[in-house]
Nucleic acid binder design. Structure first.
Lengths: 325, 325
DNA sequence: AGCCTGTGCACCGTGAAAGCG
DNA sequence: CCGCTTTCACGGTGCACAGGC
């Protein structure tokens, strides 16, 4: 059977408390007994019973990462970085894709990181109701809770500039769900920029909703690739839908039409030709998440709101835009 | 503060034990008091303290899914299905990509599912040493531990047949790491089939190692696409590396050359043209994992070995092979 | 007596305050 | 004051048993 403190105590000829102090590096144990206890613990291959520790200390170093899908590769790119940052600070990250209130309210987790770029206000409220220290990876400065998000405004301006350099001028915009905070922010920025440049032209007539999904974008793009040649997609998945429709129509991306995405998916890097897109430095993002998490943890309940940090956007220039000479 | 059994007991005017019985649906509580207790629990928004439950019962319904990478999309496709199957049976799956012995030996988890298709014997032994009920998603019938794996032999035969239907005859094989069980099984099957069909020809001269990775496959393929035109890739990632090299050489997959992969990645479905590949029904796979897990859990310690279940392979016929008329 | 409903208490493994020589 | 022990607490479970009809 797995050894516990009592077993070690019996072998060392001391009390359980002394073993506990020795293993936790606390004072009040002579160096000699400490070494003896550590040696016995190592020889028995002792590891503490985490549930008992959590129960006794009423604290946990476990943090839950709630993802919208294991296949959403924007978020999976980030998880690994976030996990690395948290582990360095002594936390252990565990990932799930289901919001099971019984689990999250079970005192097992110290807090929650929500990696869901399609997050809407309803779900956000539902998550905050769990009462855990929480950091969101999408959301608005105005909304409740703390969040660390990519700079959609700056990113969309970069995307617009990149598309302005294209030979293609017939602009079409593929948008996500209306309720999605990310989609709304990106679309509003683009509209403002567009109306600034072309005050006379109707922007919204060029906007087609495609739910942030590759399949929906593919479906609507069959006709779009015949009318338009400059596609600004509010995420990379939809850009890949345009790729597919273009391929089947015998059109070459980067030649016959220009496409730009948003999020810097791995799949975009491997698309042919490589997808020009807007990305956010994942390591910077992860480190900021950790910093905000620590702040939220210490903040009095309810004072999490308004914490809002922006990760600067960069243009990842590949080959899906045909530039003017 | 979060309510506990004592709070409920006080409000209901009964003992803590009665509350525990009522909430767990056990006998010995009258229907009237049970309803009263349930109502109070609901109104207080009570959820049990999981650590205390695990400590008291010495059992956990938490299962850890250990993945090799959050980006490995063969495994992420499976996680969601496995999670669904396990949740139906009352388990809760939590995912991590780090083998932290302190965590896994902490009595928090009931058992372990290892989703690592690149698993080798060393790592497998290391994981088994943790002493948890474990199911691997890669491995050999001969090896220790229980595993549920795709039928590499049957799958590779299907791949061979599919490629035999191609107009392209200059065969090249892209292989993974030698230590990988999956790569070895697939390669050995292919070699046997090839030598059966062409006893005079040297098979191994046509095999190029590319580490199961898209970038390595891309690197080696620049020259390969000039010598060969029929590529059997032991996984889809490498097939996509061939795609990229072909694209840059001005060659069209499905026209100028034929490619088949293995694993049925999502990225292959969205590649242009769609990648013909070998897949395994993920729902069947997930259900089998659950069944084997239950068996392993109940088996006496050490008796997990030799459990070995095969998931049948199917050909996913898309458009990367140019067939004879 | 026997059945039904409910209670008291030891226990799970660990942590930490207070006590003691 | 040092070095260690005693004691209680954490939240929940389940056995043995009590009391009423």
């Amino acid at each position: 059977m797995k050894p516990n403190l009592k077993d070690i105590a019996a072998r060392a000829g001391v009390s359980v408390a002394t073993v506990s102090y020795a293993l936790n590096g606390q004072e009040g144990v002579s160096e000699a007994t400490r070494q003896r206890i550590l040696a016995i613990a190592a020889s028995l291959n002792y590891t503490p019973h985490l549930s008992a520790q959590i129960l006794a200390t009423r604290t946990s170093k476990l943090v839950c990462a709630l993802v919208d899908s294991y296949q959403a590769d924007v978020t999976t790119q980030l998880i690994a970085r976030i996990e690395a940052a948290f582990i360095q600070t002594g936390y252990q990250l565990l990932v799930t894709d289901r919001l099971v209130p019984e689990l999250l309210r079970s005192d097992l987790f110290d807090g929650l990181i929500v990696l869901d770029l399609t997050l809407d206000a309803t779900r956000q409220a539902e998550i905050l109701a769990l009462g855990l220290p929480t950091v969101f990876l999408a959301g608005t400065a105005a909304g409740p809770g703390a969040c660390v998000v990519g700079d959609n405004v700056g990113g969309m301006k970069l995307a617009w500039q990149a598309m302005q350099a294209s030979v293609h001028r017939r602009l079409c915009v593929l948008a996500g769900r209306r309720a999605s905070v990310n989609s709304a922010q990106r679309l509003n920025t683009l509209r403002a920029t567009f109306e600034d440049a072309f005050p006379q032209t109707n922007f919204d007539a060029r906007v087609v909703p495609a739910d942030f999904s590759i399949t929906q974008a593919y479906d609507v793009s069959h006709t779009l690739v015949k009318q338009y040649d400059a596609f600004i997609c509010l995420n990379d998945a939809m850009a890949l839908g345009v790729y597919r429709a273009a391929f089947e129509a015998g059109l070459r991306v980067g030649q016959d039409l220009s496409v730009i995405g948003f999020d810097n998916l791995l799949a975009g890097a491997y698309a042919l030709p490589g997808l020009t897109t807007i990305g956010f430095d994942p390591t910077a993002w992860a480190n900021t998440v950790l910093a905000v998490y620590e702040a939220v943890r210490l903040a009095p309940r309810g004072a999490q709101d308004g914490q809002h940090r922006l990760i600067p956007a960069t243009l990842i220039d590949r080959h899906s835009i045909r530039k003017r000479d």
